[in-house]
Design a protein around this nucleic acid. Structure first.
Lengths: 235, 235
DNA sequence: CTTCGTATGTGTTCTATCACACATATAGAG
DNA sequence: CTCTATATGTGTGATAGAACACATACGAAG
């Protein structure tokens, strides 16, 4: 169906498949590219595809009735968007938005489910990833409750950089504030403190990570917990 | 292995199994009873059993390095504790504690995994429940960020009452504060306001829900979202 | 009925964050 | 080079909660 799949920066879940399973799925893989802000899936809406990010980042967001938003999870090439399609629910009550433009590989729900039901490596990988995502979401819950803005910002920058291929992130303070569920001014303040320490630098929607080690120091423990758990589960 | 299982208030997941699958698992079910505060599973520790609460409530807690705690999920007879055993990770980085004493049915990891791999109703139910739990955790994340203490307390009381069989809950403000990840005094204040409105009443570790409808009104939207999603998935 | 451990009440101070209201600076279009 | 939309800086209250320090009150055991 699609002759040329991206060569190197493939999605990790797909890359980990044994040849046989990969071959079967290969014919259903369809690369697409999405730009910043595009909605991959609307809250509560039935999905027709499952999406495997290649060099894009997808944010799982929840919007409250009053319009306030907060992120619950972040998905890059280590994962997949559309868990509900194999978990059996079909839909989820949150939105999936492109946070960093790039390509994804999508697979039709039916094809995915067929392969999932075979109970092979594919199923195992998807379930393990789902568990890793749960840990990420759970940690976000606790972190939101117990840690101050600056630490949360550090954590978020680290998570984002892990999923970006670069150390320059294209995003405004305003955007970040919607992800962290805080005021834009609070982001600006925290970012400025980090810039003062030489950890990051930024100008108009372009953030550069200068000192990753220090960023990890300034972050709360949550970053490490999630990262370690992810590596344990997916390597 | 165990001749007499509790008659009526069974665990919902087990109750929903078709006779054949139930029969196979039946021989591996072992009812146990646990008292308040017992640790069903320690963070990061390999589990030997999976636990299906019958008339007990289990709290999924995360403890920070500095000792602060916050709850990420609540499991009653609608669910199961030990998701990592079928999701493939084996362990999870959080603790499971008895929040309300009572009985559970436990099943050895091996037996559970064997039945899970058959890919029948059991697998389907467990995965759907896992999705419902994810929604609960995700909503907790967002709620922790965006809603004030009093609304969160209402939500938590509602969730707890749904899982308790009674409208009297045995728990101190201190205990609740550890679940919500806030100060005990903050719980006392919010509780007193609710008592003033005649929504609840309490004395020394015994909370009575007087006006459930009003409690739902005073709660944030999060309670409904999670509840609706759970009903959609598990009915 | 007393005692004592524990649960809850109450106040004060301190801090982070929100909520507004603007000022300023930058990149890109023309 | 100028203009303009947009991103960021800055200040000033208001408020929710945290932290701490006790006072009180309940209720089970004796």
């Amino acid at each position: 169906m699609n002759p040329q799949l991206p060569a190197q920066p493939e999605n990790r879940l797909l890359a980990a498949l044994p040849p046989e399973e990969y071959e079967r799925l290969r014919h259903h893989m369809e690369p697409i590219s999405l730009s910043l802000g595009e909605v991959v899936n609307e809250s509560g809406e039935k999905m027709n595809y499952v999406y495997f990010p290649v060099d894009s980042i997808i944010s799982l967001l929840y919007t409250m009735l009053n319009g306030a938003t907060a992120e619950m999870g972040l998905v890059g090439r280590e994962g997949v968007v559309g868990i509900a399609l194999f978990m059996g629910g079909g839909t989820m009550p949150n939105r999936a938005v492109v946070q960093s433009a790039g390509t994804l590989i999508r697979i039709k729900a039916k094809a995915l489910q067929n392969e999932f039901r075979r109970g092979g490596t594919f199923q195992l990988l998807l379930l393990k990833y789902t568990q890793a995502l749960m840990t990420q979401i759970a940690q976000t819950a606790v972190c939101n409750r117990l840690h101050p803005v600056e630490q949360r910002l550090c954590r978020w920058l680290l998570m984002t950089q892990d999923r970006a291929q670069s150390n320059t992130l294209q995003m405004t303070h305003e955007f970040i504030s919607n992800m962290l569920g805080i005021q834009r001014e609070a982001v600006s303040l925290a970012a400025r403190r980090l810039q003062g320490k030489g950890v990051i630098s930024y100008v108009r929607g372009r953030i550069k990570i200068l000192d990753r080690a220090q960023l990890e120091n300034d972050s709360c423990e949550c970053y490490r917990v999630v990262k370690d758990e992810q590596e344990r589960l997916l390597c």
